[in-house]
C-alpha cells in the first residue's frame, strides 16, 4: 500500500506539465542528426496546429529554401517566439533535425535571432 502510494505520487508528479496538441508523429524527422541553417527568413507561418519557418540559405553554391516545422503557436509564444519575434528578412541561424527522406525540411530545435539571442522552446 505504502509502496503503491509512493509510486502514484511519483507518477502524478510527472504528469503536471505543459503540452499542446500533437497532431502528428515526428517519425519523419531524423532526431539523431542536426542541421544548422544560416540564412534569411522568407516566411513565419504562425498557425495551428504547427508553425513553419522558411529560411533561404546558401548550400553547396546554390540558393535553396528550407522549411522547418516548429511547435504549436502557444508553445512558440510561451518561449517568446511570437509572430513579432521572427520577421521576413531577418538574418537568423536555425538548428533542426532533418527529414529522413532528404527533402529540405526539418523539425525546429532553436533559433539565433538578429540580436544574437538564442531561443530554444521546451
Amino acid at each position: 500500500m505504502r509502496k503503491s502510494l509512493t509510486m502514484l505520487l511519483f507518477l502524478v508528479g510527472l504528469v503536471p506539465a505543459f503540452p499542446a496538441i500533437a497532431h502528428h508523429s515526428g517519425a519523419m524527422f531524423d532526431r539523431s542528426k542536426t542541421v544548422t541553417l544560416e540564412g534569411v527568413v522568407k516566411e513565419y507561418k504562425y498557425a495551428a496546429p504547427h508553425t513553419w519557418i522558411q529560411v533561404v540559405i546558401q548550400q553547396d553554391g546554390a540558393t535553396v529554401t528550407w522549411a522547418v516545422e516548429g511547435g504549436a503557436p502557444a508553445r512558440m509564444k510561451a518561449a517568446n517566439l511570437g509572430p513579432d519575434m521572427i520577421k521576413v528578412g531577418d538574418k537568423v541561424t536555425i538548428r533542426a533535425h532533418p527529414l529522413r527522406d532528404g527533402r529540405l525540411g526539418g523539425s525546429f530545435i532553436d533559433i539565433k535571432l538578429p540580436n544574437g539571442q538564442v531561443i530554444k522552446p521546451l
Binding site: 508528479g13 510527472l14 504528469v15 503536471p16 505543459f18 503540452p19 499542446a20 508553445r75 510561451a78
Partner: peptide, 27 residues
C-alpha cells in the same frame, strides 16, 4: 490534461521530468 499550456498558462522552460511526463501523459 496537464497543468499548463492548453489555456496559455505556460511560462518558461520545463524540467526534463516534466517534459517526459508531458509526452507520456499526453500521448
Amino acid at each position: 490534461s496537464q497543468r499548463r499550456s492548453t489555456w496559455g498558462q505556460a511560462k518558461g522552460p520545463l524540467s526534463k521530468e516534466a517534459r517526459t511526463g508531458r509526452r507520456m501523459a499526453f500521448l
